[in-house]
Design a protein around this nucleic acid. Sequence first.
DNA 1: TTCCAGGGTAAGC
DNA 2: GCTTACCATGGA
Length: 290
Amino acid sequence: MADDVATRFFPVRDYDLEATLTSGQTFRWIRTQAGWIGEIEGRWVRVQQTPDGLLAECSTSERAGEWGWFDHYFQLGINYSDMIKLLPRDEPMQAALDYCRGLRLLRQNPWECLAGFILSSTKQIPQIQQIVQRMGQRLSTPLTLSWLDTPVYSFPKPEIVAEAGESILRECKAGFRAPYLWEAACRIQQGELDLESLKNVSCDEARRQLMTLNGVGRKIADCVLLFAYGFQEAFPIDVWVARALHEYYFKGTGTPGLQEMQTFSQSHFGEMAGYAQQYLFHYIRTNRKT
DNA sequence: TTCCAGGGTAAGC
DNA sequence: GCTTACCATGGA
């Protein structure tokens, strides 16, 4: 039956599931009393933090026993202690690292990630989550288990969004982002932009292609490069990261321009700049709220 | 009420 | 080239 559930424990140290799922890189996980419920590539998934790792459950309607997709999504193969050694040893970076040790970068589905960040502009994270949730309710069929009353909606594929049209996206409260998302869905559905092929090109080339989409600039492209394609050198600069750079690294030198911050981040944070960015973002956004 | 939110675009200098 | 108004919506 589709209600059968497979369970597996993944031993992993330094993995902060809560920080990872609430740090604004993904918008669709639901917190419940019994862990986080979500969907990965069509599978119903529940994940719980334990002292020594992650406890995972998934629906077994397809290929039970193969968990490579889980490992890939949560990036369990990353050598965490080696990774953080590559971060700069300056004081603010170490403070951010101490604050959210175990925060990880996920490897998400490119279309869902792209769509989520097209919807993100001048929106707070809870509002982005609401729009994504409405789109799922409107355009997807729920994944659910009979004994569980929390339905999970997959994110609608490009062809579904393309056919739905802009007006439905506006009804989901996408606002002025609705035409951007609809156009992106149409171009992908028609094969004008191949998100799969971007896995095989350089970071710069993938960024160039993403930015041909209307409504996708440097920041949104960098989010997709980092959270979906695994380009760890990508360094998305939003209002919070700009604030962090200004306060921690450009103290007393006037307001740095975007280009200046971009150049600095590349030379200062190195090949793991994307992790540095995520730590600074989560640190300044959640630690400092009054 | 006003300001701000994981921005981008196009019009105006 | 660089700055600025505007886009839609809800929370603080």
